[in-house]
Write a protein that binds this DNA or RNA. Structure first.
Lengths: 199, 199, 199, 199
DNA sequence: GATGAATGAGCTTTCATTCAT
DNA sequence: AATGAATGAAAGCTCATTCAT
């Protein structure tokens, strides 16, 4: 129905760099969505997100054509941040602390905001499908951390990146569920200890 | 939110004798609710529950005055089952296997059905408030298991019942997130290893 | 998902005779829909229909799960009325007047309310699909009228029921379009004359 | 509703010179609108029209300040084409064939695209109001054809231009409704026969 | 003049909850 | 007690229209 999509003719590049204000609004909406969903759960209304972002509903739907798309975008954004963090950690000093520092960061974040993904999966969204590319990137980034830590003798031999992620997800939830800071610290400590090289 | 939930059990005549068929219906609804919410998430409609239970909606609401009340009842029922399981385990043979066997049961269950609680907490319900009595009972039952295992030298010294529960919650989620059986087994193993006595 | 749909056990017959008040409401909604869509076009809101019927929106959607379903139901109802009228006409006296009287009735009705179907087809609904059974019944009923009139020498030899319907649809629109009564009468007369036996 | 539509034509410099590209865009939009509305009904979105025309929405609204204005413009354009066709026909050879050829053209067009006007009238727009001038022109052009055909004895004596138009509208709809080509041909034939001189 | 991002009223649809039967 | 029809407040989403770029 849109044969050529030619609508500028002299616009330098085809797939729209997105006007400056549009870009700004998109970011604001994403931010607002993250905050609102973290605070009220995925059941929060799209209007609430719009209000928080200070834009009209129409704007939210222009950028994310579906509520699910918005949810996905939030998830992807969060994962992208994790990827960046993991890469930075891999660059840093000692392998062991690099990996465990990263994990603690993940857990901390999840604990205050909301768990790795599961408000989504609880709502019936197939998380795996959604995150596509990013999932691969995250896996790769963690693979590096894992390999380094393994080589340095700081990590159990039988675990790879996938296992580390699963364990991190678990630790996040343990942290969320723990009724107080002391219990939280112990529980997380226990779980992470499970990852360390056994004597 | 509905503290006076306490229904029957050992008060043979008191509050509500509850006609035989009414009792049966209550049970059917609860069962249906568990199945439906497990399958479709907490967003599933109350009508779907009624349909599955083979009763009219009116009946569902007669027994559980609110959708939230129904959700809570499901959660409480599941925890009650855990309590029973934990007590049975404590009666059995060796302390170490008793505790870890129980934990594996919990994790397995959560993994196939759905996590310990969090569809609820994802929906903004304060789980801690809700479960009131049962939470105490579960804690007590696990305390017994924990103490026995600790005395037998099968459990890290610095963890009590609360920590064990948090770790179990974590392990459940690790299991749910793991993409395949092999990774699931390793991740759960790692976490439970964290609980064992360190050399 | 609804294995048996057993919800009465002693309700005499299975597929719900529909409670008395429900039946009444369904009829009211249908009537209201006919009036509202006739007056404001198919673009009229479902709420307007509910208001006119004196019921809540929910009730409209309980009976007709979709706006399209409501539209279809209106169309089917109207066609059913035509079928009844055609059958009655076939019972009556002379074949020629029976057919042409019926056609005039159809045209008159369409002219005041709105055309045979096309607000729908204008809205992209595939009318043919929708009316299924009724279409067949109408065709059959008109077939009878047509055959009788043909035998009586009051109808052109080369037209059957389908052609008669098409011509009636045409005449309805001619009537709707005509700017005044005199022109309307002449135009309709011209078209119906086309159907009569040529000398 | 936009009476001052009168644009250019024989006023070479007056109201708006209208830049060359603007003129081109106006035409493109009109064309696109005709195609889109024909294909998807009047419910089609203005954006769809813009997309099809290869312009931004803003441009559509600059030329036609309202969706209704756009709809009207499409209708007027179509009628203008008919006027031209009618005038050409009047110039041609024998009166009878001239009139009936014209009518067949009208019917054919309507049948493939969509009926004379009624998606509009179905949407609650008062078509008569809208077309103002053009309606008069069309009437006049057909008056000529009618008079010629009448004088040549090829047309019933009691019908004038208005009746012919009404009948043409009817025939268009008969054609649209007919389920197959054979029935369509017969039904249209019947209606047009009604217009011919009776023996 | 052209563009397309922003707007928000309005629409369809769902669902917890109530209440006459 | 049980039923299921009725209710109406949201929710998600669309689209004509405006206006800064």
């Amino acid at each position: 129905m849109t044969p050529i999509e030619r609508h500028g003719a002299d616009t330098p590049d085809a797939n729209r760099p997105l006007r400056a204000d549009a870009r700004r609004n998109r970011a604001r909406v994403l931010e607002a969505a993250e905050a609102v969903f973290a605070a009220e759960g995925v059941g929060a209304s799209t209007e609430a997100v719009a209000r928080r972002a200070g834009v009209g509903i129409g704007t939210v739907f222009r950028h994310f054509p579906t509520k699910e798309a918005l949810l996905e975008a939030v998830l992807v954004a969060r994962m992208r941040a994790l990827v960046a963090h993991a890469r930075a950690a891999a660059q840093g000093g000692e392998p062991g602390p690099a990996l465990f520092g990263f994990l603690e960061h993940v857990i901390e974040q999840s604990a205050t905001k909301n768990a790795f993904a599961d408000a989504l999966s609880g709502a019936g969204v197939d998380v795996t499908e959604v995150v596509g590319d990013v999932r691969g990137e995250l896996l790769a980034a963690i693979e590096v951390l894992t390999a380094q830590a393994g080589a340095a003798g700081a990590l159990r031999g039988d675990v790879g990146a996938a296992e580390v992620i699963a364990v991190a997800v678990g630790a996040s939830h343990a942290a969320m569920w723990a009724p107080d800071a002391k219990i939280r610290a112990t529980a997380v400590g226990v779980i992470l200890d499970g990852l360390r090289k056994m004597a």
